[in-house]
Amino acid sequence: MSAGYELRVVQQAYDGSPRRVVLDVDALTVPAGEILAVVGPSGAGKSTLLRLLNFLEPPSAGTVVFDGAVVPPNPPLSLVRRVTTVFQQPVMLTGSVWDNVAYGLRLRGLPTETAVSQVLERVGLAALARHSAAKLSGGEMQRTALARALVLAPDVLLLDEATANLDPYNVGLIESIVRDQNQTRGTTVVLVTHNVFQARRLATQAAFLLGGRLIEAGPVEPFFTSPRDPRTAAFVRGEMVY
């Protein structure tokens, strides 16, 4: 099952002096079953956007529509559990690789045995199932984090710079798993990345954030080949220093 989003006049601001507006998006659609790459320099509001999409924090203003329904300020756990995020720095829980991958299923009171075995095979970590998660390499940790997310069969998978610190082998492996997840199971994917090449390889839709504002969004090919906004053009050509 897949689900999409609509963001309407969404703003996220944090208290302080002065009040800091980190995200200000008039309209953004994430179509169900697509892979949206959100690109932009550091501090553009990309991670904030993912936290909103995972319902980990409510927006300061505006409306988020998920799967056709307006998301309330305190969304029920059943709604939050339809979405999950893989972060740039995967935090491993104390225990084995198996324990980490089974964690979300246990939270939901679901059986773990078959689902965890299958997903560990998929990410190439079956042999390390009983190893301590804390002793894995960076690539293995990130694949564990991906397995921990995929085992939940989410409607939406959010990736926050999930391959930023990895070697090309692990980047390729994770990209192929994400692509397969999208194509065979219809999972909507929102991918935050600095890497325009990765965005172009993987995504069907793209969006460019700059200074918290959505500059441009649309299907991936025209986004990269003939961007409408000169700032988007500068970014995709690698001319924007960030």
Partner: peptide, 12 residues
Amino acid sequence: GLRLQVRALGAG
């Protein structure tokens, strides 16, 4: 990051 991680995995 641990709190955010477990919340993202569906912890109440």
